[in-house]
Design a binder for these strands. Structure first.
Length: 581
RNA sequence: GGUCUGGUAGUUCAGUUGGUUAGAAUAUCGCCCUGUCACGGCGAGGGUCGCGGGUUCGAGUCCCGUCCAGACCGCCA
């Protein structure tokens, strides 16, 4: 028998009992006549006490044990003479009668503590040691809880978990595919799914009605702190529903998750915003609405005063940083440098300080009178003590830059509290997006998204203006998930492939199976998918999803622990009929 | 594909204008210590300054190249 209790459960009520515990040696404190050892397992830490007067032999044995040794101990639960209020087991300790070393350990390359001394790289290489740390373990436990509660909720709503294949077919739309060579079909390749999109639609045709799956998806694109080449989606699809039904169902799911997992009661009704409004007010399709700092259109009051930069600009935008008129020259210069970094790419930053005495100070007051500047303040609804920050340029560019500046100011002003959660449905996404590079339209969501019926007549005249029945759920500036009402009509689907520049033959070759299915009584349907990794990271208050994945890949898509990817040997290459270029 | 930042002890970092024997903290090891829980005290060991080349009397420091890591842009239906 290895244990009668875990290292997290003993309390004063157990005093007097003889117990067996197994775990890792977290830390030992040798005081000469006495030695204390913290024994750790998944559930907590229990202190072991050794006293030279009472049992010199075992005390000597205990002094020799190193960090991360795996121990089994047997002893009596006793009350501590000096208690530790900081840990749940702090009122008791074990007077150890017997130690068995189940395994010894090399000294770990970094300390296994909440505040470890190890950097990212060394921890990634020894991920199995990093996972012993409480902070990381708690993140994985959070993920487990979210996944479990997701299943509970969806099950309660009659959703059915159906597995879909992982070895599928490469398609031209969307992200790059990971491909897998087929040995039995030499020269041909499977692709790993970017999402189970077509399969879940086929399940609707099959009459499954409500489907879900917590499923791995793969995209061969460059990585970020919140992007991994393999990631997990909560993938869902429903038949006989309209957009409203879907939004309500999954609003309920997100509320359920926050309630059960975090004890947080979200808005009873999530606010909604059209894509157009989100771009206009926040320059982003996933606005962080924990704080306002909304964009203000300054075209009316800034143009026509012979300030060339504004006169030539398509759009002049401002945000009003409340109570920041006290910003020093140095702070403003720093902000200016920040927006001029190549990643942001603004040419400059113009400010307006609304001084407490009612006067105005601007970086461009050569061009504008105090009366002009008062108009600026009025337009922006700025009061004495406020600071306006202005950017100008082409519409898309300046919105994008201002979005970055807005988020940056939100950080600077401490307005982005990770323990505040503000969901937002962004709806009415455009159906198509013009792609300069290929000179054609791309599906903004995916090629199966249905256009809004009222916009159908624009398809021929102005395809870029057509709105889709597509929606995203944003929270705290993160896109948690998105979806759409799908096309379930063969002709419209075929028309869509035309728009995207597929020839009839290509469309047939790539998606013939789907269009055929639509000829056999496809029900109206739609769905959405949440990024589980991002959802959990957001719930945990983190920007990076890596700590919420047990074995993540690094910036370059490598697993530095197992050292993947790696070359194949010649025999394997031959068998697959492959030769390197 | 691009931009920026970094790479020095097991680990996290400092290292001035190019100049003596490259430091600190922590970890490890040894000795001391009977109520610690970030235990404390004394001591010791520990370095391919990422790699290659160049400039120089002399390079951790300057230059070029390269590799690796992180953040970001492009990309991510």
């Amino acid at each position: 028998m290895y244990r009668s209790h875990t290292c997290g459960e003993l309390r004063p009520s157990h005093i007097g009992q003889t117990v067996i515990l197994s775990g890792w040696l977290q830390k030992s404190r040798d005081l000469g006549g006495m030695t204390f050892i913290d024994l750790r397992d998944r559930y907590g830490i229990t202190q072991l006490a050794f006293n030279m007067d009472e049992n010199a032999e075992i005390c000597e044995q205990a002094r020799k044990l190193g960090r991360e040794f795996v121990l089994k101990i047997e002893g009596e639960v006793i009350e501590r003479s000096s208690k530790n209020k900081n840990i749940p087991t702090g009122e008791i300790e074990i007077k150890v009668a017997k130690i068995t070393v189940l395994n010894d350990s090399k000294t770990p390359p970094f300390t296994i503590e909440d505040e470890t001394d190890g950097g990212e790289e060394i921890r990634a290489q020894y991920r199995y040691l990093d996972l012993r740390r409480t902070t990381i373990r708690e993140k994985l436990l959070l993920r487990n809880k979210v996944a479990l509660e997701t299943r509970k909720y969806l099950d309660s709503q009659e959703f059915i978990d159906v597995e879909t294949p992982v070895l599928i077919k490469s398609t031209p739309e969307g992200a790059r595919d990971f491909v897998v060579p087929s040995r039995m079909n030499e020269g041909q390749f499977y692709a790993l799914p970017q999402s189970p999109q077509t399969f879940k639609q086929l399940l609707m045709v099959s009459g499954f009605d409500r489907y879900y799956q917590i499923v791995k998806c793969f995209r061969d694109e460059d990585l970020r702190a919140d992007r991994q080449p393999e990631f997990t989606q909560i993938d869902c699809e429903m038949a006989f529903v309209e957009q409203e039904d879907i939004l309500n169902t999954f609003e309920g799911m997100i509320q359920h998750l926050f309630r059960e997992v975090r004890g947080v009661e979200l808005d009873a009704k999530f606010p909604r915003m059209t894509y157009a409004e989100a771009m206009e007010k926040y320059g982003s399709d996933k606005p962080d609405i924990r704080f306002t700092l909304e964009f203000i259109n300054m075209n009316e009051v800034t143009k026509g005063k012979n300030f060339g930069i504004f006169d030539d600009a398509e759009l002049v935008l401002a945000i009003n940083a409340h109570d920041c008129a006290g910003y020093t020259r140095k702070q403003l210069d720093k902000l200016t440098d920040w927006v001029r970094r190549p990643q942001i790419g603004a040419k400059g930053l113009i400010y307006l300080k609304c001084n407490e005495d009612g006067t105005f100070k601007s970086s461009v007051d050569k061009f504008y009178s105090q009366e002009d500047l008062a108009e600026w303040a009025k337009t922006a609804n700025a009061k004495a003590g406020d600071l306006l920050l202005l950017l100008s340029g082409g519409t898309d560019k300046v919105r994008k830059q201002m979005n970055e500046l807005r988020l940056h100011m939100g950080d600077e002003l401490g307005l982005r509290n990770p323990n505040v959660f503000k969901p937002l449905w962004v709806i009415d996404f455009p159906l198509l997006e013009w792609d300069e590079e290929s000179g054609r339209y791309h599906a903004m969501h995916h090629p199966f998204t249905s256009p809004k019926p009222e916009d159908m007549d624009l398809i021929d005249t102005d395809p870029g203006k057509v709105r889709a029945n597509a929606y995203d759920l944003a929270m705290n500036g993160v896109e948690l998930g998105g979806g759409s009402i799908r096309i379930h009509d063969r002709d419209i689907q075929s028309r869509m492939f035309d728009l995207l520049g597929f020839s009839k033959e290509e469309a047939e070759a790539q998606f013939g199976f789907l269009m055929s299915a639509f000829e056999y009584g496809a029900p109206p349907h739609g769905g959405l998918a949440f990024g589980l990794d991002r959802l959990v990271a957001t719930m945990g208050g983190s920007d990076s999803i890596r700590d919420y994945i047990a074995f993540p890949k690094n910036n370059s898509g490598r697993d530095v622990m197992i050292d993947a990817p790696s070359p194949l040997n010649n025999e394997q290459m031959n068998e697959l009929g492959l030769r390197l270029k």
